[in-house]
Design a protein around this nucleic acid. Structure first.
Lengths: 125, 125
DNA sequence: AAAAACTATTGACTTTTTGTCTATAGTGAC
DNA sequence: GTCACTATAGACAAAAAGTCAATAGTTTTT
């Protein structure tokens, strides 16, 4: 399977969440943030907060923290409910670079397919 | 979530197999083929037959047939074991066009992320 | 001040997907 | 006939992703 597609254990390998997690690392390299704010920021990359269950985002953040790519702490300075503020760790920066490269590879694979499709369409018509 | 990411039932929505199935439809628009031959043809799109279990390919073909996007028949003309020859149906052609468009969208989303990453890297250094 | 509404996070449950392993079955070679 | 090879199919298990509901503190409303 194509590079960037992972190798994969059952149900696993490259996951749907990969793109989202990469977006999160990028956002956190820009500035630290918490669940709800990151949710809004994801808009920039085509996500639509209204249409997604935010649990998925929280799970992604927890997974990233378990992997040591982000770190979190409770911020009590804010008004309103307590927020768990996330920020990027040095390993997170490294992973971000790698993941971006992986997505770049994936983009190239899609481009190959697009090109092939254009050729087929031309030969058929 | 980004267009091209499906909406999704549990564990579902946009699946890992989406890219592979689109490749298969494209290959079948070029010419009909069977399991093992398609496996080889997938090389063009970055797949590595040695490293993947062919069951996955067969399942993909059966799924596509269930969805009416391809049709199959036993070819007895060949020497060697019987082969199930697959070919693209008209609905399959339509889906192929849609799926390519969906992947195009996905590629654009990746490009957005790549661009954003370049900007962040520049501002950090 | 009690109730309601909102922000924020977490955890349990369920379905679907996906990878692996094994079974079947025909064909050609020795 | 047995063995190896090509080709396809099915069962099983593990993991991921989606939904739903629970918790908990904080403003706002009445």
């Amino acid at each position: 399977m194509p590079a960037g597609f992972g190798q994969g254990r059952p149900g696993g390998g490259r996951r749907k969440m990969f793109f989202m997690e990469t977006c999160l690392l990028l956002l956190l390299q820009r500035a630290s943030g918490y669940g709800y704010s990151l949710m809004e920021d994801l808009r920039e990359f085509g996500f639509q907060p209204e249409q997604m269950d935010i649990s998925i985002l929280y799970r992604a953040l927890r997974d990233l923290e378990t992997a040591g790519l982000v770190r979190s702490s409770w911020s009590d300075e804010s008004l309103g409910p307590q927020r768990r503020m996330y920020s990027l760790t040095p390993p997170g920066e490294t992973s971000l670079a790698e993941w971006i490269e992986s997505l770049r590879q994936r983009r190239r694979e899609i481009e190959t397919l697009e090109t092939a499709y254009e050729r087929v369409k031309k030969s058929v018509s």
